[in-house]
Amino acid sequence: MYGASKIFNYLLYNIIILIVMKLIKVKAIDCYVCTTTNNSLKECSDPFSTKNPINFLQKDCKSGRKNRSGLFPATSCIKISGVYDTTKIKLVIRSCALDSGSLTQDTELVRNSHCGIFRFDEQRMRGCISTCKEDGCNSARSTVVFSSPFIMAISIYIFSTCFF
């Protein structure tokens, strides 16, 4: 059986973590937002320069959420670049996205950075889907970084193994 002081310490630690998480204000990520086909909008094409005269940076980017109506603060920036297999049209999309919170990774675009063959607009494409979680990070190829819930889960695990 656990001692009362260990249980108290564990509960106090969890309460402090929850209070800190509530105090952190939700701010949407800043992402570049533009689309180009066959380099029709050269400023959006690769190589991308943040010094272009047209500024595509959208502050506090908002995105739709699966099975919900309205727009919500985005959690990730996204860049889709590729070529349609059938038409050979080159497409580059820079935007923001939101993890919908489903349990499986295969249905969440923001959790699936990869290069290769994928389907977009009901057509097969060859290219890359890149996601990232830092302001303005979709100007080039990016990678996924760990999120704060993951870090919190690890800290709770470490704390509980130290005290129990």
Rank of each mutant, 00 (worst) to 15 (best):
K59W: 02
A140D: 09
D46T: 14
K88P: 10
V26P: 14
F56E: 02
V110L: 00
P149E: 04
F163C: 07
I15G: 12
K59D: 06
K133P: 12
N14A: 08
K6P: 00
T104L: 10
L103K: 14
C77H: 01
Y2I: 15
K6L: 11
F146V: 10
T86D: 13
K90V: 06
Y13F: 06
E108A: 08
F48A: 04
S49C: 06
A28V: 06
T87H: 05
K90A: 06
G101K: 08
R65P: 12
T107V: 10
L41C: 11
T104C: 07
P47M: 04
I154F: 01
L18S: 07
I19Y: 01
T161V: 15
D85I: 13
L12E: 03
Y2V: 15
K133C: 08
N9Y: 15
G70K: 03
M152V: 08
N52Q: 10
G3P: 10
G64E: 09
G3K: 05
L91A: 02
G136C: 04
C44W: 03
R124K: 10
I16T: 15
C162P: 00
L103C: 08
S76I: 00
L109T: 09
R94G: 00
K88V: 11
A4F: 12
C44S: 04
I117H: 12
I151L: 11
F150I: 11
N38Y: 03
F163E: 00
M152Y: 09
S102Q: 06
Y13K: 05
L98V: 02
S81M: 15
D30F: 01
I78K: 05
S160V: 07
E122T: 02
C137P: 09
V144C: 14
N112S: 13
I24Q: 07
M21D: 14
C34T: 02
A153R: 02
S81T: 13
T107F: 02
I129Y: 03
S5R: 14
M125Q: 00
L11D: 05
D85M: 10
T75E: 03
F159G: 13
K51H: 07
C115N: 03
K22D: 10
Q123W: 00
S147K: 12
G64N: 15
D46W: 15
E43Y: 01
G82R: 15
R126A: 05
K22T: 08
L23D: 04
L103E: 10
D121H: 06
I54V: 15
F150E: 13
C31I: 04
C115K: 08
K79S: 10
R119H: 10
C31E: 01
N9D: 13
C115A: 07
T104N: 06
C77S: 11
I156Q: 12
I17R: 07
S155H: 04
L98D: 00
N67T: 09
M21V: 09
I19M: 07
Y10P: 07
I158K: 12
Q105A: 14
K22N: 09
K133H: 13
V33E: 04
S81L: 15
P53R: 07
I54S: 04
I154P: 01
F146E: 13
F150G: 08
N39K: 08
D99V: 03
P53I: 11
R68W: 09
L41E: 00
L103M: 12
K90H: 06
Y84Q: 14
R124V: 07
F120N: 02
C77E: 03
T143Q: 11
I154N: 03
Q58T: 08
C96I: 00
S49V: 05
F48C: 03
F8Q: 11
Y32L: 03
C132R: 04
K90M: 07
R65D: 11
T107M: 01
